[in-house]
Structure formats: C-alpha cells, structure tokens
Computed example of a mutant assay.
Amino acid sequence: MPQPVATTEKQVTGDLYAEVRTFYARQMRRVDALDIEGFADTFTEDGEVVHSGGERQRGRAEMIAGMRASLPRYRDICVRHWFEHLLIEADPENTGDEDTVRTSYYTLVALTDREGKVSFQPTFTVEDELVRRDGRLLTRSRVIHRDRPAER
C-alpha cells in the first residue's frame, strides 16, 4: 500500500493555484500571439526580466523594445510556450504579505513552421515573483535559467 508523502512546505489554496495557472495561460497566449504590449502589461511598470544569457530588461518600455527587436526571428513560425512542474510559494518569508507569490516552473518552447515541422528551443527553469496590484496578479521579477547537465 502506498505511503503518503510528507511535505514541509505550506500548501497554497486551490483557488490561488488556479489563479496562477490562469495568469500564466493568459500571459503566454499574449507572447505567443506576439501581442508585445499585452504581454508587457502583465508585468509591473518597473518589472524586471533577467534572461539566461545575463541580459536584463527593466520596465515595460525596455521589455517592449527587446521583444520588437526579436520579431524578425519569429517570422513564418508559430510559437508555443509550455509550462509545467509549477511550484507556488505564497508569502515565502512568512511576513504576512499576502500580495506576493513566488513561483518556479520548467518551460519548453515549440516552434512550428508553415509546413508543420516542429522544433524545440532549449529547456529553461524560470523563477518569478508575482504581486497583486488592484486585485490583479502581475510579474514583478522573472529570472530565466537555461537548463544544463548537472556537474558530476
């Protein structure tokens, strides 16, 4: 008979889990549709993204400029971002701050060309800090780590 697995982390509510999953579904549909302004609007005004190569974008204006510069790369392809193994930690420092949520997840990006050929980008682990502003979740910080084999 299987034994239950004990956890030491505080579990988030089902409502928060569903809200975070829905937030990411909407956020990624915007980026996949190349809705640059809509995607940037899912970040706080001073939001920050640190890409796996170390490039840092601060604020929506820098994010929009960076995404616009990348648009030619996405000509004639359909992009899909897939997130999985989502971990959600509400108020990780137990400060009583119910408006901050930290998440970590794996992501896979699939590219489909006009002939239907699918290719994949390297996989990544992403760490986000989400905050609630006026009842709405927004990304305040995103750090993207390219996955690499473990050192042995």
Rank of each mutant, 00 (worst) to 15 (best):
R75N: 03
V31H: 07
A150C: 12
Y17W: 15
S104Y: 13
H145L: 10
T8H: 10
H51D: 07
M1E: 09
G38L: 07
F43Q: 05
R60I: 07
Y74I: 02
Y105S: 11
L34R: 02
D41I: 13
R75L: 03
H85T: 14
T42D: 06
F39Q: 00
R21H: 14
H81N: 04
L16N: 03
P2A: 13
R152Y: 07
E45D: 15
E19T: 04
H81A: 00
L87N: 05
M63E: 12
G135H: 05
S104H: 09
G38Q: 08
S70W: 15
T22V: 05
D46T: 15
A61C: 13
M28Y: 14
L138Q: 01
T125K: 14
R56T: 02
Y24S: 01
S141F: 07
S52N: 06
F83T: 09
L71D: 10
V109G: 00
R146C: 07
S52K: 01
A33P: 03
P4V: 10
D41P: 11
V20D: 00
V12W: 13
E98D: 15
T103F: 01
E37G: 06
Q11Y: 13
R60Q: 12
Q3E: 09
A6L: 14
R114E: 11
P92H: 01
E129N: 12
R26A: 06
T13I: 05
G14I: 12
T103C: 02
L108R: 08
D91F: 03
V12Y: 04
A61I: 11
V79N: 10
E129T: 15
V109P: 00
A150G: 14
D41L: 14
T13V: 06
G116F: 06
A69M: 10
D97F: 09
L111V: 12
T107H: 02
V131T: 15
D35I: 03
R21N: 14
T13F: 02
E89S: 15
R148G: 08
L130W: 02
M63S: 13
Y24H: 05
F83W: 09
F39E: 00
